[in-house]
Design a binder for these strands. Structure first.
Lengths: 351, 351
DNA sequence: ACGGCACCTGGTATCGTTATCACATGTCAC
DNA sequence: GTGACATGTGATAACGATACCAGGTGCCGT
């Protein structure tokens, strides 16, 4: 940004087109944007545009309009595949309006917290709006900055961060009930749960749903000793939980375990297998999210899938609406249903 | 982009700061960018800047300079986790210079070919440079456009697309040799190979390396019937290969199989397990790339890892160099070594 | 014949920033 | 005491595009 002038981009300007077509720049602008222009002039200008390969500069337009034609997406960490589906939905929605997408992680390289990039977006008015994926309390200052800058914001996040912006999320409570019903139907009565971080709203909600469904069935239990929370959603925590699990005598184990997300579930299963247990023969296992990986491991993973594509699209659409019409009421939330994908990792309880 | 004027962003401008500090805008600019300014004026201006929360508009700067402060990254498809490591490396490098990253896929939603977003970047001069991840011949028109626009380009790609831009890639030939040595050392003599698409340069190179290493060892073979190419790098093709594999009588199988990439390898293993085979007891399996997933499946996957982080960083650095100094010679390539990660999926040949 | 209107076109100012030049100072050397 | 030179500041003109207003036509109705 510091360097002298830009490269000698041979890109032509509207003035060049105007000169060559013997009209004023304004007329060229009108030809492009559809204002009054006689057929002859229009044809002449369009010919010159094609000859020179002219296309309007996004930068100059951005300065003139208030709009940048570009939104920012901030993800927790750029590693981790689970949000790719979201990005797909966002991109799809943006593509319809020819808008761009700037991506940054809130914690680059999983280093110390550093939201400077996103903060710079706001300060420098680089984007027309922001989508936060998994917004946590640490990002509060960013939110304040966005608010002050009057910048539309949406969240893809289980808990509504604040009375500002649109929040898009899944029915995590229902998800808990759904997986519980599935396991109960298969005959499981003692069910375990290994959640993500205890302060993560989605794990809590899912557990609540699970608990409610379990308590509605006579003889079904969700014992305190079978419920735990891990420090993160990383696979390593799933592995740790598995090591814990195999240490217990078989009679003291739940016959089905629900993990906080698919990554954890897959790691959990792997570790059980390493210890010689078989899934689902010895224990049924299920996760949440519906990442692709669950489809290509063995056994394939039963999960309650988030409609990632839809979540992304909804967050994006909501953001665009708010950009279009800043008067839209804020603090709304949109909820999406989650969907059971029953696969190999769950089976009827062995007698 | 069409709408009237932008939102009433209450962001303050350099003029507002200047007025409040009783100086000319130019002076404010100098205070920010470090030109001559007396200590008193500097202090006064900086105070006002803080009071008003002023930050220069990236858009206006972009128009003034030639630079957008932003590069574009075009990936083949936004699904697929394997390039997240690359993105991490790119982001890291960009972060150092406070540059932005615009992301787009060449085939959004894996629909019909549609590079319109990237083409628009070029036409509208939205980015200072482009990184192509897995550039294929279908993107040729884009490349031509970039060339005409005098836009720096780098590729993260096994085959050098053209005599233009910097290409960053791995030593795939060596990778083939590396995995071959590993398997040969473990005592395997009949080795199989299941590549990606036949026209993918990396699969071919890896096979060549494999072949060379195998042929150097007496008694080791890479038979034609044990070598195949699949239509894509998708896990489904790995699964298909496994079905093929288990159909053969055990005596006609290689004792070790190398897959085109990790996704395929993991799917291959899963399918073998489903058929009742055990890895590595019945067959050793290895992949390429080193995706995270290979670490949490069972058995963990032996692979030859690409230094994704480094590849991304190198491509980005090269791009920035070229943006800085457009006279840099083009058509260069930078090669990176790949690294063996020996894990559970490969073991000494069972006698 | 003249006001009114629809149609087409151009001039000018503007978005927010900085390069360039011009003009003040003050300081030092000779 | 006068030129040379560093230091500080401001006025002006760009960067590329478009909003707005002000013309110019021609055609119609009265």
């Amino acid at each position: 940004m510091k360097a002298r002038r830009g490269r000698p981009s041979n890109a032509s300007t509207i003035t060049a087109v105007a000169a060559k077509a013997n009209v004023a720049p304004m007329t060229v602008s009108r030809v492009i944007n559809g204002g009054y222009a006689s057929p002859q002039v229009r044809a002449r200008v369009q010919k010159v545009i094609k000859e020179l390969g002219y296309a309007p500069s996004a930068t100059a337009r951005s300065l003139r309009y208030g709009r940048k034609g570009c939104i920012g997406v901030a993800v927790e960490s750029i590693r981790g595949a689970w949000f790719m589906g979201l990005l797909g939905g966002i991109e799809e929605e943006l593509g319809k309006k020819h808008l761009g997408l700037m991506l940054a992680s809130l914690k680059p390289q999983d280093r110390a917290y550093d939201a400077s990039t996103v903060a710079a977006w706001i300060d420098a008015r680089r984007v027309d709006g922001l989508i936060f994926v998994r917004f946590t309390k640490h990002e509060r200052p960013l939110l304040r900055a966005a608010k002050e800058a009057n910048l539309p914001v949406t969240f893809i996040c289980p808990d509504q961060p604040e009375d500002f912006g649109l929040t898009v999320r899944c029915r995590n409570f229902d998800a808990g009930k759904i997986i519980a019903s599935h396991l109960l139907e298969l005959g499981h009565r003692r069910i375990g749960f290994v959640g993500g971080p205890p302060d993560s709203e989605d794990s809590q909600e899912r557990l609540r749903g699970l608990r409610e469904a379990v308590s509605a069935v006579k003889g079904a239990t969700l014992r305190a000793e079978d419920v735990s929370f891990e420090s993160s959603y990383m696979p390593s925590t799933g592995r740790a939980a598995a090591l814990e699990f195999v240490k217990r005598p078989a009679s003291k184990r739940p016959s089905a375990v629900v993990l906080g997300n698919d990554s954890m579930a897959i790691a959990f299963i792997s570790e059980l297998q390493r210890a010689g247990l078989q899934v689902p023969r010895d224990v049924s296992v299920a996760g949440f999210d519906g990442i692709d990986e669950g489809e290509r491991c063995f056994p394939t993973l039963t999960t309650v899938a988030q409609p990632m594509q839809n979540l992304g699209a909804a967050a994006c659409k909501g953001l665009l609406d708010r950009i279009e019409d800043p008067s839209l009421v804020d603090g709304m939330t949109a909820e999406f249903p989650m969907q059971l994908i029953a696969r190999e990792s769950t089976a009827p309880r062995s007698s």
